[in-house]
Amino acid sequence: MPRIAATAPPKPVPDMQAVLSAQAALGAKPIETLTPAQARLQPTPADGVAQVLKAKGLPTAPDNSVTTQDLAYGTDPMRVARIYKPAMASTAPRPVVVYYHGGGWVIADLKTYDATPRYLAKTLNAIVVSVEYRHAPEAKFPAQHEDAANS
């Protein structure tokens, strides 16, 4: 069998490297060295993006052409669905997109992943529902999937 030569992992593109460098400068540690509780408290890629934008003199405030509203669901007050709506008035029906943020069901939250549903609402002229769910390991499987189904 022929041997496949090992190759170095690809390097991030310059814009992403700037975000990763800014996040590291804020004190972020490698995620694999942290407990879930520690990982939730450290600077996020969203914090890195904010630092890069600030350094370039660009605005860091959320795009105000999209409005948001948080609605609790279930019995746990920490479970919230954030509704994103394009600010432009429309009487026409809009599509609805349900968005579950990243973080492997363990870390991250609605704040960390605010930009994506906001962008989707604006560019698709859609209502986007971003769902916060209970996190592992505190909430055991299938709690996250139940939250997704019941939101």
Rank of each mutant, 00 (worst) to 15 (best):
K85S: 14
Y113S: 04
V97W: 04
A149K: 15
T60S: 08
T75S: 15
D47V: 02
A87N: 08
N150C: 10
Y73N: 02
V19R: 11
P62W: 04
A139E: 09
S90T: 14
R3C: 12
R79S: 14
I127A: 05
E32V: 07
E146H: 15
P137S: 03
V19L: 04
P10C: 08
I83V: 14
V128D: 11
P137D: 10
Y113N: 10
R94A: 04
K29S: 09
S151W: 09
Q38L: 02
P10H: 00
S151T: 09
K140V: 15
R3V: 14
V106G: 05
V13T: 15
T123N: 15
A55D: 12
A46Y: 06
S65Y: 10
Q144H: 15
R40S: 06
G57V: 00
V129M: 03
L58I: 01
Y113Q: 03
S151P: 06
R40T: 04
V66F: 00
T112V: 11
R79I: 12
R134C: 08
S151V: 09
I83D: 07
A148E: 00
V52N: 02
A149F: 15
M88C: 13
R118H: 02
D63K: 10
Q69V: 09
P117D: 08
P45H: 11
Y133V: 01
T123I: 13
I83G: 04
L120C: 11
W105R: 12
I31E: 09
Y100G: 00
T112S: 12
R82L: 05
P10I: 07
K54S: 14
K85D: 07
P86E: 01
A121D: 02
Y113R: 01
E146W: 11
H135E: 06
A18Y: 02
K29V: 03
A8I: 03
Y73T: 00
Y84G: 11
V129H: 01
A81G: 13
L124S: 12
I31G: 12
V96H: 03
P30R: 08
A126F: 01
A126P: 01
S90Q: 11
Y73V: 00
L34I: 02
A149C: 14
K140I: 14
V129T: 04
G74N: 06
P14N: 05
P10N: 02
A39K: 01
V128R: 00
A115Q: 09
A39P: 04
A8S: 05
P95K: 01
S151R: 03
A5E: 13
P36V: 08
N125G: 11
S130P: 00
T112H: 05
A39M: 02
I83Q: 08
